[in-house]
């Protein structure tokens, strides 16, 4: 399976006098889980927004495969295969879980004018199949007809991930997917992420929980003050002196 790789070259973003992202290069390889760590204010969130298209870089380019997507809106990027989840789960709270997923699965059909005239079919068999398959593979069948707004946090996170998967991503960008989860649910999440990567999807994981990031990723970028201070396999980054000094305050790493 050949999926596209996400790359950012020389990304720069400033707010007033502060350089939030300072000349960062990053690659999210297909079939791999890439981690992004850093203390508060290190520029993780800004870099994430530059990749998803919520913000525009002042300098630098973002590529998905060979296509330059630097100036594309987030929804266009999503249709090209770059799908994100949010720190606060972003489910469509009045819709059922199945319909939430269906929105993701149908994102490449935009015959809105036809829909207005009542021409479009009610649903697409293929889209529904994708939804059913995804629900089953994540063990969410029982939730299919629940209204999303009533789900507990753990289920919300899973459903949001399922919805992202239904949009058939090449690259999945996850913003603190484990926040709000308890230990048990976090373990379950990391198992799922490995499954997703095994299917060829590139995953970028941003999280406060260094323990989780080191345990699940293949490649880690550590940011401090808007710059990448260390990159490599988890064991390399873990032993990096800068990273160690920054995270000393976070408690013993090993």
């Amino acid at each position: 399976m050949s999926r596209a790789e996400l790359t950012g070259y020389g990304l720069v973003r400033r707010y007033g006098g502060l350089t939030a992202v300072d000349n960062v290069n990053i690659t999210v390889a297909p079939g791999k889980i890439t981690g992004l760590i850093g203390p508060n204010g290190a520029g993780k969130s800004t870099l994430f927004s530059l990749l998803t298209g919520v913000e525009q870089p002042e300098r630098g380019k973002v590529f998905l495969g060979r296509r330059n997507i630097t100036r594309m809106r987030p929804d266009v990027r999503a249709r090209r295969g770059l799908v994100q989840t949010f720190q606060v789960p972003s489910l469509f709270s009045s819709m059922t879980v199945a319909d939430n997923l269906l929105v993701g699965a149908e994102n490449r059909h935009r015959d809105y004018a036809g829909g207005l005239l009542g021409l479009a079919p009610h649903g697409n068999v293929k889209a529904r199949q994708i939804v059913t398959r995804t629900l089953n593979s994540l063990g969410l069948e029982g939730f299919a007809d629940e209204t999303a707004g009533t789900l507990p946090t753990g289920a919300l996170r899973l459903v949001e991930l399922a919805r992202a998967l239904c949009a058939r991503p090449d690259v999945l960008l996850l913003d603190e997917p484990a926040s709000g989860l308890d230990g048990q649910e976090t373990e379950r999440l990391s198992v799922l992420l490995r499954q997703v990567a095994a299917e060829g999807v590139g995953v970028l994981l941003v999280d406060h929980d260094v323990e989780l990031v080191f345990s699940v990723t293949d490649q880690v970028y550590a940011m401090v003050g808007g710059r990448v201070v260390a990159e490599g396999t988890p064991s390399v980054v873990r032993d990096d002196p800068t990273v160690r000094s920054v995270y000393l305050a976070q408690g013993p790493l090993a």
């Binding site: 606060v88 789960p89 489910l91 709270s93 507990p152 946090t153 919300l156 926040s179 709000g180 308890d182």
Partner: peptide, 10 residues
């Protein structure tokens, strides 16, 4: 307790 859809204290 928690914020919006996220339960922080379990």
């Amino acid at each position: 307790a928690g914020y919006r859809t996220i339960e922080v204290l379990h």
